[in-house]
Amino acid sequence: MTTTRTTLAEIAAEAGVAVSTVSKVLNGHSDVAAATRVRIERLLSRRGYRRSPVARRPARTGVIDLVVDEPDSPWGLAVLPGVAEAAEESGLGVLVSARRPDILLPRGSQGAVLAVSALTDRQRTGLDRRAIPFVLVHGAGQAHRDAPSIGATDFAGGCAATEHLIALGHRRIGMIGGPDRLPPARARRAGHGAALGAAGLPADPELIRTGDLTHAGGLEAAAALLALPDPPTAIFAADDLQAGGVYEAARRSGRTIPGDLSVVGFGDLPYARWLAPPLTTVRQPLHEMGVTATRTLLRLLNDERLESPRVELATVLVTRASTAAVRRGTRSAGSP
Rank of each mutant, 00 (worst) to 15 (best):
R42A: 15
D230V: 15
R57N: 12
L313P: 03
R188T: 04
P205Y: 13
A190M: 15
R60M: 02
T330W: 09
L226K: 01
R124D: 15
T233W: 14
E304R: 12
A321M: 07
A203V: 14
A234S: 04
R255Q: 10
R47G: 10
R189I: 13
A276Y: 02
D102H: 11
L8T: 04
T233E: 12
V246L: 05
V19A: 00
Q284M: 15
N302I: 00
R310H: 14
T319K: 11
R39P: 01
I166F: 10
K24H: 14
C159M: 13
G197V: 06
V17M: 08
V32N: 10
G217F: 08
A227V: 09
R56L: 11
A160H: 08
H164Q: 10
P336I: 11
T61E: 13
L226P: 03
R51E: 03
V22A: 05
S253C: 05
Y271E: 11
V282N: 02
P258G: 00
T120C: 02
A198Y: 06
A321W: 02
A131K: 11
A333E: 00
T120V: 03
T125Q: 14
D180T: 05
A249V: 00
R42G: 14
G82V: 03
A115P: 08
S322W: 00
T214P: 10
A87F: 01
R47M: 11
G178P: 00
G93M: 07
A227G: 13
I176N: 05
G334V: 14
R50K: 15
Q142M: 15
A84M: 15
G177M: 08
E14Q: 15
L269P: 01
T2N: 10
R100K: 10
D239F: 02
A160L: 11
G16Q: 07
G244S: 04
A324Q: 06
A13M: 05
Y247S: 08
S253E: 05
E307L: 12
F134P: 05
R299A: 15
L44N: 10
T3F: 12
R39I: 00
G139Q: 08
V137N: 14
V83P: 06
V67I: 06
R251I: 04
L201H: 09
D268Q: 05
A250E: 03
A98T: 02
R310I: 14
L182Q: 05
R320G: 06
R56C: 08
G329C: 02
G290P: 07
V22W: 07
G158Y: 09
L261N: 04
L219G: 09
L241S: 05
R130Q: 12
L226R: 01
S20P: 03
S23N: 14
G16F: 07
R57F: 15
V263K: 01
G290K: 04
R51Q: 09
S20I: 02
